[in-house]
């Protein structure tokens, strides 16, 4: 079913994540093997509690798996120290969270270039200009996050995720708190990240319309992979979700 691809930007082999012990033991991910292909937009869907966020956190180096391996580009994340993981995140990963993405003391532009700053890298002006233009904030780049709308803030976060030219951009329900117009603008921006800037995007979402922006949709249920869809449309995704939830 998978389209033939040359490289994978990130992936997991036999990834298992267990929370708690004894009575409170929860297997959030159960032996998941997955690849995220370079230059593709992948959406992850599944019922609440199915392990989507956990999968993303593990692959992004924010959390450590109980067992299994995680690859980011050609780097194996197992056994890296905190500082090494931090460096990997900074150089190879971009993030967009559902909310609270930006540092309130920095301006929009400073927030965008923050990862470069942290790495001590000079921004590539052409790339920054292009991304900033894509964000479409115009003259509001000098504003603090508090002076921007929720949708604008999320777009700034998205630009920040793209600016380091990471191997993978992870977005966990970035449209969760936005209305449909702001959502569309944000998803279009992520899409352009893939099409124009050649990035790899992994999007966790509950919204079939959002998943329709992706090239591929992976379904998770009870911590396991439960199939995938290529060239999704909102309706096909919705159908698949309904079956999944019925099974669950």
């Amino acid at each position: 079913m998978c389209p033939v691809t040359t490289t994978t930007a990130a992936g997991a082999d036999g990834l298992t994540k267990v929370y708690g012990e004894g009575e409170a033991r929860v297997v959030a991910l159960d032996d998941v093997t997955v690849d995220f292909h370079s230059g593709q937009f992948t959406a992850i869907m599944g019922p609440s509690g199915s392990g989507k966020s956990t999968l993303m956190h593990c692959v992004a180096g924010l959390d450590t798996p109980s067992s299994g391996r995680v690859r980011l580009g050609e780097v194996d994340l197992s056994g890296l120290s905190d500082d090494q993981l931090t460096a990997v995140r900074r150089d190879r990963v971009g993030f967009v969270f559902q909310a609270f993405n930006l540092l309130p003391t920095l301006t929009a532009l400073e927030n965008i270039t923050l990862p470069l700053d942290l790495a001590g890298r000079r921004p590539d002006p052409a790339l920054v200009d292009a991304i900033v233009a894509a964000v479409g904030l115009g003259d509001r780049l000098g504003h603090r996050p508090a002076q921007l709308s929720g949708g604008q803030q999320q777009r700034v976060a998205c630009a920040r995720a793209l600016v380091t030219s990471p191997d993978v951009v992870f977005a966990d329900e970035p449209t969760g708190a936005l209305d449909s117009r702001s959502s569309a603008a944000l998803l279009a921006l992520l899409r352009r990240g893939v099409d124009e800037f050649g990035r790899t995007v992994v999007l966790v979402t509950h919204d079939p319309a959002a998943a329709a922006y992706a090239d591929r949709v992976l379904f998770l249920a009870d911590g396991r992979l439960a199939g995938e869809l290529t060239e999704p449309t909102a309706n096909r995704v919705l159908d698949r979700m309904k079956t999944l939830e019925r099974v669950a």
Partner: peptide, 10 residues
């Protein structure tokens, strides 16, 4: 957030 986008503990 700062840590997530790549700030070391230091």
């Amino acid at each position: 957030v700062l840590r997530a986008v790549g700030a070391r503990r230091r």
